[in-house]
Design a protein around this nucleic acid. Structure first.
Length: 284
DNA sequence: CCCCATGTTCGACA
DNA sequence: GTGTCGAACATGGG
């Protein structure tokens, strides 16, 4: 479920417990979501601590705590990735934790819950004075200046034969883009999802770059704020089932697997570039 | 029972 | 070493 905008939405769900003191931590340590996580430390240190702030970056979230078992000047950093079916919520106490509530931070009157039935999500925890290295090493956000058209083009050329759809899903360069956003972006940029990433024209690069920023911005507004429904003018509401109609052209949408994921596009407006004509290749 | 799912990782192979 | 592809992970819904 969660891509860029949904992640931002879920990050805000824990806002009601910001500046509240954690009374008790419930962590089901054997759950797959804790793979690679030092659960014992998390459980030992967070009681008595206070959630101070949180951030979302792409599909990652980070929550900062201080106090409790942490020494002065030190923070506890709780990282959360929602995977495919994860979600965050705050519930009023008394609350009966469900079977998929792998992590619950109890305050006096509330329960901050991380639930994830499929457990493709992931929880991490670290103690330190500054934001963890892995967080600072994340690639530039898609709405930041560090994400620019030329850098994007260089990355795509290096993935010359990868279908553009698959390339857009690579988090190392497009943090936060998931399956539906990739389709929405290509639809707006009028690029066929199977187009080789390294073969875009200059014009297509421009259109792609613009569409990435546009979809990110609009998705954050519509979904990231209060999980509103994207308007019918987007591909989004038409892409999920067989037999959808392109809201721009009125023609039928196509659905096939591209790059291992179900992909929806409008054949009427997204056509593969004609290639292989063997024209010039001025090189020398 | 079968197929599908808004994600990531790892092993096999070119 | 690099790039690409499919399977695997665990569970629920149609």
């Amino acid at each position: 479920m969660p891509e860029l905008a949904e992640v931002e939405y879920y990050r805000k769900q824990w806002e009601p417990v910001r500046d509240e003191t954690v009374a008790r931590v419930e962590a089901h340590a054997r759950a797959r979501v804790f793979r690679g996580c030092r659960v014992a430390e998390l459980t030992a240190v967070l009681p008595g601590a206070v959630l101070r702030e949180s951030r979302a970056h792409g599909k990652q979230m980070l929550f900062r705590f201080d106090g409790g078992g942490l020494s002065a000047g030190e923070s506890g950093w709780l990282g959360v990735h929602l995977g495919m079916s994860g979600r965050l919520a705050v519930e009023a106490v008394p609350y009966a934790a469900g079977p998929h509530d792998h992590l619950v931070l109890w305050t006096e009157s509330q329960a901050a819950v991380f639930a994830d039935p499929r457990q493709f999500g992931k929880v991490s925890f670290a103690v330190g004075r500054d934001w963890p290295d892995w967080w600072r090493g994340l690639p530039p956000g898609l709405l930041e200046a560090g994400f620019d058209q030329e850098g994007m083009a260089v990355f795509l050329r290096r993935r010359a034969r990868t279908p553009i759809k698959a390339a857009l899903l690579l988090q190392e360069r497009f943090p936060g883009i998931g399956n539906w956003m990739a389709d929405e972006i290509l639809w707006r940029a009028r690029i066929h999802p199977r187009e080789p990433a390294g073969g875009l024209s200059r014009r297509q690069e421009e259109a792609l770059f613009a569409a990435i920023r546009e979809v990110c911005r609009e998705a954050l507004e519509v979904i990231g704020t209060d999980w509103g429904d994207p308007p019918a003018s987007w591909l989004f509401p038409h892409r999920w089932k067989e037999g959808g109609i392109c809201p721009a052209s009125g023609r039928p949408l196509a659905r096939e697997t591209v790059g291992g994921r179900t992909t929806c596009w409008s054949p009427a407006r997204q056509k593969l570039r004609q290639r292989g004509g063997g024209k010039r290749k001025v090189k020398k």
